[in-house]
């Protein structure tokens, strides 16, 4: 049974597991350990950076990223194989994820909304990437997995820098 939002604190053991996973993910992404990052995702997972902040029907609109597992793995290849000059010379990133709000909590699945502030540094410039993030984490005996991550940038409809890293 899914419990109502206001009743579940972030100290709830199921929510704490999800937050643990989200922080581990943030660390792996900042370290650009993309193959280890992939391990956090379920085979049916979606990773989305939409342009339209209001939609949930990502398939019907143009997104910045709309990755199923096939696309996510190709993206990881691109970011790690050494041919992509944007990835070879990618900005160094440091991100914090906080302001966690559990949206739906059951014994099988936790949906958490959070704020992510990322600073990317490259060649004397700092770029700021701020976003509302939503994770759906599947809780399992064999490990917890991300089944959905949606990163809604505050400036998703404006021009952002072309990036050699992931949010």
């Amino acid at each position: 049974m899914t419990e109502a939002l206001s009743l579940v604190p972030t100290t709830d053991a199921r929510v704490a597991r999800a937050i643990d996973l989200i922080w581990r993910e943030a660390d792996l992404l900042d370290r650009r350990e993309y193959r280890a990052w992939d391990e956090l995702y379920a085979d049916d997972a979606l990773y989305v950076i939409p342009i339209d902040r209001e939609t949930d029907d990502f398939a019907s609109v143009l997104n910045m990223v709309y990755d199923d597992t096939r696309m996510r793995r190709m993206r990881i290849n691109r970011l790690t194989e050494g041919y992509a000059i944007a990835a070879v010379d990618a900005a160094r990133t440091v991100r914090t994820v906080s302001r966690f709000v559990p949206l739906a909590v059951s014994d099988d699945e936790v949906t958490v909304r959070s704020a992510q502030i990322l600073v990317a540094y490259k060649r004397d410039h700092h770029d700021l990437w701020a976003a509302d993030v939503e994770h759906v984490v599947r809780l399992g005996a064999d490990g917890d997995r991300i089944v959905r991550k949606v990163i809604r940038l505050v400036d998703s409809e404006a021009a952002v820098p072309a990036a050699g890293f992931l949010l």
């Binding site: 950076i49 910045m64 990223v65 190709m74 993206r75 691109r78 992509a84 000059i85 944007a86 990835a87 952002v160 820098p161 072309a162 990036a163 050699g164 992931l166």
Partner: peptide
């Protein structure tokens, strides 16, 4: 900005 082509062009 996150395509497989554009960031390399940029």
């Amino acid at each position: 900005p996150f395509g497989f082509g554009t960031p390399d062009d940029a």
